[in-house]
Amino acid sequence: MTVANEQSAQTPAIELRAVTKRFGPRAVVDDVTLSIQRGRTTVILGPSGTGKSTLLRLATGLLEPEAGSVHTLGVDVFGAKKHELLRLRRRMGMLFQDNALFGSLSVFDNVAFPLRRVQRTAEPEVRRRVDELLQLVGLPELGDRLPDRLSGGQRKRVALARAMALSPELVLFDEPTSGLDPQTSASIDQLIKDTQTRLGLTFVVITHDIESAGIIADDAGLLLDGKVHLFGPRATVWASQDPRVRAFLERRAG
């Protein structure tokens, strides 16, 4: 099935069909079928090591599954040609779990990188836009530092600014608030929520933080042992009486 990009507004942002990914003999993502809607914030919850990050890598084509198909923004990720895939990725932003900042570039140059290299924006415009982004994440005066010289939370915010630099339609956040103090976490949650409502973008957020999920999520999914245990509107998930869902949400040892 191929759908032209223009008429694809109704197609899901990310659609996985019967996707399986193995590392060695173990299926880390096990026959997952999932459809993430556009214009909403979807939160993926799940204990450590259940394959959440792997799911994002599959959705962006950074990893190839053993079985199943992935459509992202209406493009068949593993049927597309290389340049089509590269073009698709320019419509997405990704905040990596471990930030993946370019170690040899300053904070400013990190955020400017996609603008300069991908969009080939003129330098005065780059300057204006980067300042704006750094302001947004609350780091206006750290532009000259190297990533090594930042705290973990500051690095995360730089990575967030870089992920948003190209004004992507779809932004994937892999644990945006892990390792941050509660106040900074709350401000990032607020940032995500505000940006989403203001611009109507599609956000997919992976998190362990149930409190922040409660604030930002429109939809929520719980991933357990490589399978989607439950997926639906947040209210439905939060009201579920399934014992494993309750155990996770109430942070009980399961």
């Binding site: 890598r57 962006t60 950074l62 290389k82 590269l86 073009r87 698709l88 990725r89 320019r90 997405m92 932003g93 990704m94 990596f96 471990d98 993946a100 900042l101 370019f102 170690g103 990188f113 996609p114 290299r117 991908v118 870089r162 190209l166």
Partner: peptide
């Protein structure tokens, strides 16, 4: 290899760069 291990290479790919 250090860029690959710290996912900087994937970050480039995510920007649609080769």
């Amino acid at each position: 290899q250090a860029m690959r291990v710290t996912r900087q290479v994937e970050a480039l790919e995510m920007m649609g760069l080769d």
